[in-house]
Design a protein around this nucleic acid. Structure first.
Lengths: 149, 149
DNA sequence: GAGTAATGATACCACATCAGTATCATTTGT
DNA sequence: ACAAATGATACTGATGTGGTATCATTACTC
C-alpha cells in the first residue's frame, strides 16, 4: 500500500488552446464595426475593410452578412454598394456580438439538468459562478463600439 | 442603391453551444475532490465515487489519473487501493483545476501577435478585457474545495 | 442592354476540442 | 495464483473554429 507518488517532473506539457472568451469572428466583427463607425454615414464595402484590417476577405464577407441578417448592418447591393451601421453605436455591444457569433452566455450551466443536482455543495458553487457571470455580463454589455471609439 | 433591409423575422436560430467557461472534466474533478474531502484521510476508489456521483467510470478514472499526475491526488495501486487528497483543501481551487483540464487562462489574447496591433481603439478594448479577466481570476482562485465544503 | 462591381446564399474543408470508451500493463493485498 | 485496484495509451463521434469556394442576385454605368 505504498503510495504511488506523483511524478515530480510533471511539466504539464498540455497543448490545450486555453480558456478563451472571444472568438475570431466576434473580434473581427467588433473591429470592422469600429472602423465603420469612424466613417460615419459613409457606405463601406468589404474591400475597404480588408485593406484596413487585414482580415481574409471571404471570412470577413461572411461575418458582415451575418451582421446584416442580425440587423446590425444595413446592406446595399450592386455597384457602389456596401454596408452601413443599422443601429446606434451605443446599442452595439461586445456582449451582443458574442451572442451572435458564439451563442448564449452560460458560464456554468448546471450539468445535472434533469437528474436533480444531488450535491448541496454544488449549489454553493453555482451561486459563486452566477455572481461572476453577472459581473462579466454587465461589463461586456458596457463595452460598446461607441465606448471604444 | 436602395438599402437591402435586414429581414425582420430573423429568429436567430443559432444552434451554438454557447459561451461556457467550465468543461465537464473540470466540473467532475471538482465534485470528486469535494466528495473525497468529506471522507477525510480515507482512501476512496473510483467505484465509490461513481456510485456517489454518477459519472461514467472510465471517464472519471481518466480524470483522477490526471489529478494524480498533477500532484493533486496521491494514488495507491493494487487491491484496497484508491486515492487521497495530496494537498490541503484550501490550496485546491477551481482555477487550478481549470488550468489543468482546460489550459491557461487568456480571455483575450490579442489576435495581432506579430503584426503589431494597428488599432488604438483595440488597446482600449484590451484594457477593459484585462480588467474583467483579473476579476474572474481572483474569484475563481477563491473558490477552493474547502470553501465549498 | 451588356458589363461589372458589389452583396446573398450555400456548401465545403482541415483542424482542434469535448466527452467519453476500450485495452492492456502493472501493482498489491489475500 | 488470483482478484482488485490504478497506469498508460489509443481510439472515436460529435461539435466548434477558422476559414475557402461557388454560384446567384442586385444595381450602377456605359
Amino acid at each position: 500500500m505504498n503510495p504511488a507518488l506523483p511524478k515530480v517532473g510533471r511539466g504539464s506539457l498540455e497543448r490545450k488552446g486555453g480558456v478563451k472568451l472571444i472568438t475570431r469572428d466576434t473580434d473581427y466583427a467588433l473591429r470592422a464595426l469600429c472602423f465603420m463607425l469612424g466613417r460615419k454615414n459613409e457606405i463601406v464595402n468589404v474591400g475597404d475593410l480588408v485593406k484596413e484590417l487585414k482580415i481574409p476577405k471571404p471570412f470577413l464577407r461572411k461575418i458582415l452578412q451575418i451582421l446584416h441578417k442580425e440587423g446590425v448592418l444595413v446592406a446595399y447591393k450592386g455597384r457602389g454598394g456596401g454596408f452601413l451601421l443599422a443601429r446606434s453605436a451605443e446599442s452595439i455591444s461586445l456582449l451582443g456580438l458574442m451572442e451572435i457569433f458564439q451563442g448564449k452566455f452560460r458560464l456554468n450551466e448546471c450539468l445535472f439538468k434533469k437528474v436533480v443536482c444531488p450535491n448541496i455543495k454544488r449549489c454553493a458553487l453555482k451561486k459563486k459562478i452566477d455572481k461572476i457571470e453577472q459581473y462579466v455580463l454587465k461589463e461586456l454589455r458596457l463595452v460598446t463600439i461607441a465606448s471604444l471609439f
